[in-house]
Amino acid sequence: MADGTGVLIIGDSSGGELASTTAELLAAGQKVASELGEELSVALLGDTLDAAAQQAIAHGAQKVYAVNHPLLAEYQIDLYLAALEALCKEISPQVVLIARTNEGRELGPRLAFRLGVGMAQDCLEVSVDASEKRLLANRPVYGGNAIAVVSCDQTPQIAAIRPKAYEPAEADPSRQGEVVSFPVDLNASQARTTVVDTVMEAAEGVKLEDARIVVSGGRGLGGPEPFAHLEELAKIVGGTVGASRAAVDSGWVPSSYQVGLTGKTITPDLYITVAISGASQHMAGCSGAKVIVAINKDAGANIFKEARYGVVGDWESVLPALTAAIRELTQA
């Protein structure tokens, strides 16, 4: 087994700042690197990386590979892949960690295929096998109904980690690290896909991923109109509205509302589900919530196995009373 050296994190600094998902990877990476006795480094791609490089060091990176190129200013899969492939071939890392964001979920596998190795997708946790010193990745499979523990047989061992699975590593500005510039040869013609337009359709107000309180609605709402009641409650508590895939597929709310395995991963302090059954694929996106509350008329619904508090009843009666009482309590 060719071994490689170091733990390399593929960082994200779009917007000039180190992304929180990268700080999360640094938390995961610190543990893995120290158990392996390896160096922890971060690769940053872009055209202005200085600020993010210092932030990466403050969050625990011992080394930053700054891959500076004007063509990397905006994310473009083919160019990012070419740069990462060149870097990995040059430094031969033992472990590569990437965040399973929209970009990471395609970059990770494609990089692995290019390097001829396997990768573990959408992991909740990574650790090190004490005897063999290999990376062990815990990943939900079958929509979260099961957990698979997998390891990669070749090197580098690559894992994509689900956003919010780790708390971000703490920043300590006194930390010292090295910034190494890694030049790459790129050509605009390597980019095979072109973005010709971008359409935003998210709700206004607090972002679903950042909200402290989320109120989500499901198929049991029966139509788009009841979402107004959820909006009302969300507004009173300073939260935002989400939905199950069934509600999205029915066309009641845009897909940007979807919470779950193939929707958003959220970790609010309070998650109120209204007429959602609690399928494993839905819970995959919200099981990190501190407190889950369920309103559902079926006492046997799976959501009651996952919730802290539950009301068995028709949302049409429960929700208005809950909303009125919360309004009274919070305005008193």
Binding site: K305, A307, R308, Y309, V311, V318, L319, A321
Partner: peptide, 17 residues
């Protein structure tokens, strides 16, 4: 899961709050 049970569904909603 702690099931909150009031006199009726609306009361349960109030107790939940």
């Amino acid at each position: 899961c702690e099931i909150i049970e009031g006199e009726d569904a609306a009361d349960s909603g109030r107790l939940l709050a």
